[in-house]
């Protein structure tokens, strides 16, 4: 893998620019929603008073930032207002951004990735993807496979969702679209066996990356959660240390239940990273802030559209900047 690291040392300027533009575009709607609300909240006010804070709380909560994180942010701003005595509402956005960035920086989950390069020096690098029904696991896998493929890596997808009707077909179509390897044992087969053999397949076929899909399941179904543990163990049996990453896919439109999902999935499979999907259409980019604050597990990727290329590496700073960019520009 070090070979690849040399080859793809740094992203060139242009890619970075293009990516930022796309993130901005993808979040355009969330931004508009967020800022419209904030400007409404402070309209006609000269200073930050209790009423403005109340409105701000309202804005944060309705953006799905979540109760706990909202309270944290409000407390910080309140403290700042008390300290600086007189704060202009014009400064509010700046302060808010500051506080949010700081809040997120204080968390333990600062290990962020720079690009799509597999973070582990192993061949193959193995990833297992989990989540509740309908969050976009298979689509995210397809997009991720595309990114790995673009880096010149040989990728194999393992069809571990053997339960939902036509799930195997769906993944296979993605594999064909991306042009990567595909391993399946068909529908209604034992997903743990699929995972085991997918790793085997990756080793035999000299793959750099193996991504194993799993069936969507509600985190309240004890048996299905135990099945996940088994799937994970079966990979570890084939190749100790795998899966290197267990990625939980969360739907950005999900409310407070996302937190419970993360808890339960972590208990079953030791989730190591998160992917946040459907961020483009929700008007609720705020959920990324709530999750970054509440979890020690880092958000690694964000989905911002249905196209194959619309998956990005998540960078807190960039995200918050993007969130607040409109203000700087104006």
């Amino acid at each position: 893998m070090s070979f690849f690291k040399k080859m793809f040392g740094k992203k060139d300027e242009e890619t970075i620019k293009a990516e930022k533009a796309e993130l901005d575009k993808g979040l355009e709607r969330s931004k508009t929603g967020f800022f419209d609300k904030i400007s409404k909240a402070v309209a006609g006010k000269a200073t930050v008073d209790v009423e403005v804070l109340d409105e701000l709380e309202n804005v944060l909560i309705t953006s799905d930032v979540g109760l706990e994180t909202t309270v944290k942010i409000i407390d910080r701003i309140e403290a700042r207002v008390a300290r600086d005595k007189y704060i202009n509402t014009n400064e509010l956005n700046e302060i808010l951004r500051d506080e949010i960035v700081q809040l997120l920086a204080e968390n333990n989950n600062t290990q962020e990735i720079e690009d799509f390069r597999p973070p582990v020096d192993s061949k193959p690098y193995v990833m297992m993807v989990v989540g509740v029904n309908g969050v976009g696991k298979t689509t995210t896998i397809g997009k991720l496979a595309y990114q790995f493929k673009e880096m010149g890596l040989k990728v194999a997808l393992g069809a571990g969702d053997t339960f939902r009707a036509a799930a195997v077909d769906q993944l296979e179509i993605w594999a064909n679209r991306v042009g990567c390897e595909f391993f399946s044992k068909g529908m209604y087969t034992d997903p743990a066996a699929v995972a085991y053999e997918a790793v085997q397949y990756g080793i035999n076929n000299d793959c750099d990356v193996v991504i194993v899909d799993t069936a969507g399941r509600l985190h309240t179904k004890k048996n299905l959660m135990m099945e996940l543990t088994k799937i994970k163990n079966s990979m570890n049996k084939k190749m100790p240390g795998t899966p290197h990453d267990v990625m939980l896919v969360l739907d950005a439109t999900t409310g407070q239940n996302a937190i419970e999902q993360a808890k339960q999935f972590t208990a079953a499979t030791e989730v190591t990273c998160l992917a946040l999907t459907k961020l483009d259409g929700t008007a609720k980019g705020g959920v990324a802030i709530g999750i970054s604050d509440q979890f020690k597990i880092p958000i690694k990727y964000i989905g911002i559209g249905e196209g194959m290329t619309q998956l990005q590496v998540f960078n807190k700073r960039e995200f918050v900047d993007s969130f607040f960019k409109k203000i700087e520009g104006s």
Binding site: A166, D169, E306
Partner: peptide, 16 residues
Amino acid sequence: VYRPAAINQLTVISEQ
């Protein structure tokens, strides 16, 4: 007509 295998999914369900 968009999502990969969506039609297959409904087909499997219809058979069920």
